[in-house]
Amino acid sequence: MEGQVANKVPAPLEPQPTEKLKNNTPKSIIYSIAEEQGVGYLINKEGPQTLAERYEARHKKEQYIQQENLEKIFKLTFDNTPSEKAKQIDPDWLNYFTTIAKTIRNHSMQQLWSRILKQEFLAPGSVSLKTLDTLRSMTHKEAQVFHKACTLSCFFGTDKSKKLLTALKTKHKFLPSLFAPTLNKLSLGNFSLPYSDLLILLELGLILKSELESGELTPGSPLPFNYQNHTYQLTPHQKGLSFTYYRLSPTGQEIAELLGSKTHEPFRETMLELLAPYFVIESQ
Rank of each mutant, 00 (worst) to 15 (best):
M1Y: 14
G3R: 09
G3W: 08
K8I: 15
P10N: 13
A11S: 15
P12H: 12
L13D: 14
E14T: 15
P17D: 13
T18S: 15
E19C: 07
K20G: 11
K22M: 10
K22W: 08
N23P: 04
N23L: 10
P26S: 06
S28T: 10
Y31E: 04
Y31F: 11
E36R: 07
G40V: 03
Y41N: 05
L42I: 15
I43L: 12
I43Q: 03
N44K: 05
E46H: 12
P48K: 04
Q49G: 12
Q49F: 10
T50Y: 09
T50P: 03
A52Y: 11
E53W: 11
E53D: 12
R54K: 07
R54T: 02
Y55K: 08
E56R: 13
E62N: 06
Y64A: 14
E68K: 07
N69T: 02
N69Q: 03
N69P: 03
L70Y: 07
L70V: 05
K75S: 10
P82L: 11
E84C: 12
E84R: 12
K85G: 06
K87V: 02
Q88L: 15
Q88Y: 08
D90T: 05
T98E: 06
T98H: 03
T99F: 10
T99P: 04
T103N: 08
S108N: 13
S108W: 10
Q111E: 14
L112M: 05
W113N: 01
W113S: 01
S114T: 07
I116S: 00
K118T: 03
Q119A: 14
F121H: 05
F121T: 05
L122C: 06
P124D: 05
D133H: 13
T134N: 05
L135P: 00
S137Q: 13
A149K: 00
T151V: 04
S153M: 01
G157L: 04
L165Q: 00
T166K: 02
K169H: 08
H172D: 08
L175S: 10
L178H: 07
L178V: 12
L178K: 06
T182M: 05
T182C: 03
L183K: 10
L186E: 01
S187M: 14
S187G: 09
L188F: 02
L198D: 01
L198F: 03
L201Y: 00
L201E: 00
E203V: 09
G205D: 02
I207N: 00
I207F: 01
E213L: 08
E216V: 11
L217H: 00
T218G: 07
P219H: 04
P224W: 02
F225D: 00
F225S: 00
F225N: 00
Q228C: 04
H230C: 08
T231C: 08
Q233A: 03
H237Y: 09
Q238D: 04
Q238I: 09
L241E: 00
T244S: 02
Y245G: 00
R247Y: 08
L248P: 00
P250K: 03
G252D: 01
K262L: 11
T263C: 09
T263A: 09
E265N: 13
E265W: 12
R268G: 02
E269V: 14
E269C: 08
E273F: 04
E273T: 11
L275Q: 00
A276H: 13
Y278I: 06
Y278S: 02
Y278F: 14
I281R: 06
E282I: 12
